[in-house]
Design a protein around this nucleic acid. Structure first.
Lengths: 253, 253
DNA sequence: TCCTTTTATAGTCGCCTTGACTATTAAGGG
DNA sequence: CCCTTAATAGTCAAGGCGACTATAAAAGGA
């Protein structure tokens, strides 16, 4: 294989030479699986493709790396472009993995670095320069997506579900001040299973630094029921021991 | 930024056009952090660089993606080339993340997809076509590595340490038949902390499908001490609840 | 041969977490 | 004014786990 590669070196006008070997250049993109909670349901940010292939199909937002830009920076830039968010700085953005199967784009070889993010209180997305339309879609109603974006989206949900167990990530999906009920809804929506209210409360409050009460005994009296105390995200990064999801069956790696 | 990119389209002889936009091609490589246990100590497979930059420095094995090859396939190919392993098929190979900072290679823009693997009973590596020399190096004696490979190696150890907690990955580092003492050494070497023997044994045996005894009451009577029973890796993927490492301090995400 | 060292294995004890509950409080809606 | 809803308080028992002690079975040295 090395010989085959080396033989190309002579006539390679679009290939680089590096450590004696010629290599193929690739297109590199980022794809973003941006999740949020809306009305208690998990939603994902999708854009509608304007060109072939998959014209008219929904896809994850994303785009090409600029020449002097890391994948992380490209992801933040694309996210800001697609959602119109200004304060993308303090946001949780996690690299999922890189999708590099030949043929994942029918036209050419594209290597894509996928990221996932968890946003609170999402603004309506503004259709960017790339996309015909952009919108928040309920996770379960995201039909077949373009390219391998359905796989990326499923991987993103798996990753988020796992991180909820052993990190305090869930607060990233809540507004700056939130109730324990709102926090619990994050877990329930991502895990797809109801949690026992008192036990959830006990576990969260028993974890030092997970949440801290808002001083002044502020309470949210929005909907029905007894008004709930307000909390802020604390400095802790991970609960010990983790907050495991129920029904251990079917979680083999 | 889009306009800047578009303006390059006219004279771009080495750029592609995709969805109306020109983009920069990138070199894509894979890097491998291959770990194993030797004499109870964590070791990593390193190669000595033959060319500038970092000539003479040790680096992680790796190489360029071939035109019709996924990153996973490239990683398996490079691993087979560097270690001479034939049965790389059933091996645990996990994608770590992609390193894309501009400037991580002083000569040109290189995007690298990093993988990590855990091998049992390593054969001596054969210096491949790329590398001057290849060898197993104790993790703690891996000096400053070329490029950002020190960062990749540290990320690999973190990932492996985390996966030991909530998966049954450790058996991937043991021979087909092993004692619980050998299995415990994997945890101790990766976590860098001794474990209580009886408690470790209780936890492993209480996890259904983690290990299963070798029929015939076979026992290993190699070194000192009472001979140990032999076990094989079971079908389970993850213990429930996880096997948490001691001393929870300093594990914030 | 005996004794020490080493490692595997068996078992105990008590604390803490957690799952499964019940009860009480404080709102809103008919 | 009652009913529903949700937050909060508390109880109770089973299981997991850390910290130990004890026993068994090998190798090595005196």
């Amino acid at each position: 294989m090395r010989d085959e590669t080396r033989a190309r070196e002579a006539d390679a006008c679009d290939r680089y030479v590096y450590d004696k070997y010629a290599y193929e250049p690739f297109a590199v993109t980022v794809d973003l699986a941006v999740l949020t909670l809306r009305a208690g349901a998990l939603h994902v940010l999708l854009v509608e493709r304007g060109q072939q292939p998959y014209a008219g199909r929904w896809a994850l937002p994303g785009g090409f790396l600029l020449p002097e830009e890391s994948a992380e920076a490209a992801a933040r830039r694309e996210l800001a472009e697609e959602t119109g968010l200004a304060d993308v700085g303090g946001l949780h953005l996690e690299q999922l993995r890189t999708y590099s199967e030949p043929g994942r784009d029918p036209r050419m070889r594209v290597v894509s670095v996928a990221f996932t993010a968890l946003l609170p209180d999402p603004p309506e997305p503004t259709a960017g320069s790339d996309a015909a339309r952009a919108r928040w879609t309920p996770y379960d109603e995201a039909g077949p997506l373009a390219f391998d974006h359905g796989l990326i989206l499923a991987d993103a949900r798996d990753r988020i579900a796992a991180k909820l167990e052993y990190t305090c990530l869930a607060t990233a999906c809540c507004p700056p001040e939130f109730t324990l009920g709102e926090l619990r809804q994050v877990y329930e929506a991502v895990w797809g299973t109801p949690l026992d209210r008192p036990n959830f409360r006990r576990k969260v409050l028993a974890t030092p630094g997970f949440v801290e009460p808002v001083p002044g005994a502020a309470r949210l009296t929005g909907g029905r029921g007894k008004p709930a105390a307000l909390y802020r995200a604390g400095p802790a990064g991970a609960p010990h021991p983790p907050l495991l999801r129920p029904s251990p069956e079917g979680r083999l790696a």
